[in-house]
Amino acid sequence: MTLRRRIAVLAVATALLAAVAAGWITVAAARAPRTPPGAGAPLVLGTDGSRLLLVGGRRLVTADLARPDAGRTVGALECVRSHAAAGTGVCAHPDSPWSYRILVLDSALGRRKEIPVPGLPSRARVSASGRMVAWTTFVGGDSYSGGGFSTRTGVYDTRTGRLLDSLEEFAVTRDGRPYRAPDVNYWGATFAADDNTFYATLATGGRRHLVVGDLAARTVRTLKDNVECPSLSPDGTRIAFKEAVDADPGKGWRLSVLDLATLRVTPTAETRSVDDQALWLDGRTLAYTLRDSSGDPDVWSVPADGSGAAALLAADAESPAVLR
């Protein structure tokens, strides 16, 4: 495949992803929030691992991890994406259907930092220590993007206050060689335990790569192709990700797990297309969002080792995170 052809394929794939994201976010923003009984009740980001953080009806929600559909506590904060760890939360908060802020939250949902972001939020993550916060948005207007959309990933360090608006200026090593191109895009960051090493998807020239990055050195290097929206396991040895079927996003994605030591890929038992950055509920089980025919979300779970079967975890919810 020629370079021109690869760039065209990437533009089409990015436009497709952006259209899907824009569609569900716009529809969600246009709907009146579904506000269950108890909305506005006090909500805190605990750390004992017994509660699950969710977005339900565009509100932050916590629920008993053992029974996510029972006894939910619904907060007043409106979010389209969220995540939390070690008492730090992140919320992609809509000011309007096309205007968003990233809110960095403390354990009582106090606003530690507000960051206006361009475009439509699609991913959000907090490192296990609670120090690092990352997000991805779909944006328009980049000259190289024939489809009119690209992605932008930012990182905020809650300890130092350092804000990286984009990873696109990081030095890239692709297939062992220095690489530069105007169409480099990143999405779906996930952090290692040292709060400096991260993994993300890098797309360029019609290919999508898993990269490992060094925040301090401002570098990334490619590890494997066709790995999107990585999520690092609690022990740091595996990455859950969505793998494009036949390397073609137009055919959907298979939720899979990559062993970082061997680069062996294990597809999970979930055979439906999963367009999400999966969450590790623990070292054995993944959680992720699927949408029904009307666009409403539910959270499902599946074993990470390829065994078992997918099971409904939390109805009418999305963006799960275990509060630990």
Rank of each mutant, 00 (worst) to 15 (best):
V80F: 11
T151V: 08
E318Y: 02
A32Q: 14
L223F: 05
M132T: 04
M1H: 13
A217W: 09
K113P: 00
D214W: 04
P230L: 01
D225G: 13
F170S: 12
P94M: 02
A269I: 06
A261F: 03
G283C: 08
T158R: 11
A41N: 15
A124M: 06
L54C: 08
L109N: 11
P249H: 02
G213C: 03
P116V: 08
Y156Q: 10
S122H: 07
A181S: 15
G146L: 15
Q277W: 01
R5P: 01
H209Y: 15
P33D: 02
A171P: 10
G176A: 11
P116R: 11
G206M: 09
F149W: 15
R238Y: 05
T289C: 01
G71S: 03
P249Q: 02
S256P: 01
A193W: 02
A22G: 15
Y144S: 13
T271Q: 07
R264W: 01
E78F: 05
P68N: 03
L260D: 03
L202W: 04
S293C: 01
R207Y: 09
G46Y: 12
I102T: 06
A41H: 14
S233M: 07
C91D: 08
L210H: 00
A247T: 04
G295A: 08
G188H: 04
T88A: 00
A84L: 10
Y179C: 06
E243T: 00
R31E: 09
S82K: 07
T204C: 14
G176W: 08
A84M: 08
E318N: 03
T14Y: 09
A321I: 07
T62W: 13
S145L: 15
Y186T: 05
V184S: 05
S99P: 10
L286E: 06
G146T: 13
L105D: 08
F149S: 15
G23C: 05
G40W: 09
D195H: 09
S319A: 14
G188C: 06
P249N: 01
R324K: 08
T222G: 10
G236C: 01
V155M: 03
R264G: 15
P267Y: 00
Q277Y: 02
T289E: 00
R180H: 10
D259P: 04
L105Q: 11
P234G: 03
V80R: 07
A304E: 10
L258V: 02
A22N: 15
